[in-house]
Computed example of a mutant assay.
Amino acid sequence: MSVRFGVFVPQGWKMDLVEIADPVEQYEAMTAVARAADAGPWDSVWVYDHFHTVPEPTVNTTFECWTVTSTLARDTSRVNIGQMVGCNGYRQPSLYAKIASTVDVASNGRLYAGLGAGWYEHEWKAYGYEWKEVPQRMGEFREAVEIVHRMWTEERPVFQGRHYSIDGPINEPKGVRKPHPSFWLGGGGEKVTLKLVAQYADACNVGAGDPDLIRHKLGVLRAHCDKLGRDYDTIIKSTTLELNPAAPMSETAGRVERAVEAGADYVILYIPRVAYDHEPMLRFAQEVIPQFS
C-alpha cells in the first residue's frame, strides 16, 4: 500500500519558534519549512488551530491558523496545505465554509480543510469564546460538519438546527477541488466523530501513531461505513507521529510501518526544532518515504 506523508510547519504553538526573536524572521522560518517540503516528496504541510502555546499558555508567538494556511498556499506551488484541525468553536460554520472555499481557490485546489470540536479551554475563555462542556461542543460539531458540507455542495442550503442555522447563503466560488474541498475531521470519538467521517469526510486522523488505537478506531469507522453504505476505502486514514531527530531512521521507519499495518495510509510528522534545522526532515524524506511509496 502506498503511503503519503505530511509535515507540520513550526507555527509557535509548541514553543518551536522561541529561539527566533523577530516575528518576521519567525514567519519566514515557518515558510522556509513549507518551501522545503514543497521541493521534496511530501504530500502536505500542516498547521494547528490554536492561539496560546502548549503545554501551558506563555507570552510567545502562535500564528493564526487560517492566515498561515492562506499565505502558505501562495508561498508553495505543489504541496497540499491542511489544518490538524480547525476548531469549530472559533468560527461560525458557514463562515468556515466560505474561508475554506476561498483558500481552496487561492491554492488551486490544494486545501485539506480540517475541522474538530476543540478542546483547549484556556484559550477559549481568554479570547472571549463561551466554553461549553463536551455534549454541547459535540452537538455543535455535528451540525457544523453538515452545514459545511452543504455549503460546498448546494446552491442555497437551508438548515435549522439546535445550535446553528443558515438561510440560503450563497457560497461562490465553492472551491477548485471536485466535488468539494478535501474535508478532514480530527478526533476519534466513536459515536459522533467517526460516524461523521463516514457520512461527510474525505479523511480522518486517529490514534496518534499508536497501532492498537489506530486499529480499533478504524474498525469502528469501518462499521459506520458499512451501516451507511459508504466505501471505507475512499476515506484517507491518517495518523500523527512525533519524530525523534536523535533516533535512527530505521527506528522511525519501524514506527511508520506499524501504523501502516494497523490501517493508516497517511502519516503526518511533527519534527521538533525543524525551524532551526531542516536536516531531519530531509533525511526522513530521503531514507523513509521511499520505503512506503
Rank of each mutant, 00 (worst) to 15 (best):
Y164V: 03
I147R: 08
G109W: 04
G114V: 08
K98Y: 06
H149Y: 01
V145F: 00
G118I: 01
Q136T: 09
Y96S: 15
A117E: 03
Y96L: 13
V158P: 08
N108Q: 11
R162Q: 14
G118F: 09
R150L: 06
A144F: 00
V148N: 03
S94Q: 10
A126S: 13
P157W: 04
W119H: 13
E154I: 02
Y120C: 03
E133K: 02
D104G: 08
D104M: 11
P93H: 05
A144H: 06
K98I: 12
Y112L: 15
E123Q: 07
Y96Q: 12
E143I: 03
M151I: 07
A106V: 10
A97M: 02
S107Y: 12
R137Q: 00
Y96I: 09
R156H: 06
S101H: 01
M138I: 06
S94K: 00
Q136P: 07
Q160E: 15
K98W: 08
G139T: 01
A100P: 05
W124G: 02
S94H: 04
V105I: 13
T153N: 14
E155G: 01
E172A: 13
E143C: 09
L115W: 03
E123S: 10
P169R: 11
A126E: 13
V148K: 05
Y112G: 08
G139N: 03
T102H: 12
P135V: 03
G109T: 14
T153I: 08
A113D: 07
R91S: 11
E130S: 11
P173R: 05
R162E: 14
R156W: 04
I170T: 15
G118V: 07
E140N: 09
A106E: 15
S94G: 06
N171L: 09
E143D: 10
E154Y: 00
A100N: 11
Q92W: 08
V158S: 10
V134Q: 02
D167V: 03
P157E: 07
L115D: 04
D104F: 00
R162K: 10
W119V: 02
K132P: 02
S165T: 09
P157Y: 07
R137L: 00
A100V: 13
G168C: 09
A97E: 08
S165A: 15
G116W: 03
W124S: 00
L111Q: 10
W131S: 00
Y129S: 01
G116Y: 04
V103L: 05
V148C: 13
A117V: 05
R110Q: 02
P169L: 13
E146C: 11
N171V: 14
V103Q: 08
E130M: 06
Q136I: 14
I99Y: 08
D104Y: 07
R142F: 01
